[in-house]
């Protein structure tokens, strides 16, 4: 038994070590603590708030989408389990608002048709160059994976969105084409303030404060980065429960078997 405790403590030491070494990279260059509002999808049993995801999609669609692509998402994802869970008809309706060039007709002319469920979200720019040209040379990153692709994760995105309109501290120079944002590495961000009070008019009547929209769109982006999260946690609970019971049985089996060995 003592030996077992030794092993467990060793494993614990190692896992603490992983987390520490991992935290270390996250710390790179950030001087401001992230705002952590506490999202519904946190923790081992957390799930997405459907209404929040739908509001978040509205913010993305009406604000972010004018510059940022989400190339990993298809319209069918909007109706799948564990997401905003729109009905298939609603998702079709969203898709039909956009067109796509799809192959050629018999005369060799390109064919434009409205998007369907299996189509991806449209890209606001035809090329990376066009995107840069429209944004003072900065490329608006694809948002499909953004909460996984930034240290600090969704809390970083949430903080960043609220980091505008703050007084520039003395000693910090921000060029004219950039905005001051305390959470952005280097503090000068090429994205202008994207959200203002009532930038969108929520369909469910929620008041669209900057805080509210930031939280909603962050939740939506967290889902788009990890659409499998709910299924993952659900399966994880079953697997972990099984393993705990199985480990206990194996422990008793081992003790019983070794009882007579001296």
């Amino acid at each position: 038994m003592l030996k077992l405790i030794k092993i467990k403590s060793l494993i614990l030491i190692f896992s603490v070590f992983f987390v520490l070494s991992n935290e270390a990279y996250c710390a790179g260059g950030e001087t401001y603590d992230l705002i952590k509002p506490g999202f519904s999808f946190e923790g081992p049993t957390g799930t997405y708030d459907r209404a929040q995801l739908r509001r978040g999609y509205q913010v993305y669609r009406e604000v972010c989408a004018s510059c940022h692509s989400m190339k990993q998402l298809a319209f069918r994802n909007l109706s799948q389990k564990g997401g905003p869970e729109y009905t298939e008809d609603d998702a079709k309706l969203f898709a039909s608002e956009y067109t796509v060039i799809d192959g050629f007709d018999d005369y060799g002319d390109s064919v434009e048709r409205t998007r369907i469920l299996s189509d991806r979200f449209p890209n606001p720019y035809d090329s990376k160059e066009a995107a840069k040209a429209s944004n003072n040379g900065a490329y608006p990153p694809d948002l499909s994976l953004i909460t996984k692709a930034r240290s600090g994760g969704y809390n970083y995105i949430y903080s960043l969105l609220q980091g505008y309109g703050k007084e520039i501290p003395e000693g910090i120079e921000i060029s004219d084409t950039l905005s001051y944002n305390p959470w952005f590495p280097g503090n000068g961000i090429a994205m202008y303030q994207p959200l203002y009070e009532e930038s969108v008019e929520y369909e469910d009547g929620t008041f669209a404060s900057i805080e509210q929209m930031s939280a909603d769109v962050t939740a939506f982006l967290a889902w788009s980065a990890e659409p499998e999260m709910e299924e993952r946690k659900r399966l994880g609970f079953i697997v972990m429960s099984f393993l705990i019971i199985f480990a206990l049985l194996m422990f008793f089996t081992t003790t019983r078997l070794w009882k007579d060995v001296h």
Binding site: I7, F18, K233, F237, V239, I244, F251
Partner: peptide, 24 residues
């Protein structure tokens, strides 16, 4: 038995913190 205990740690990472060991 030892492998089962090892799997518990393994599964914690897979199901509850899958990107903790990687880089953003």
């Amino acid at each position: 038995f030892a492998y089962t205990v090892f799997l518990l740690l393994f599964c914690y990472f897979i199901f509850y913190n899958p990107n903790a060991l990687g880089h953003a």
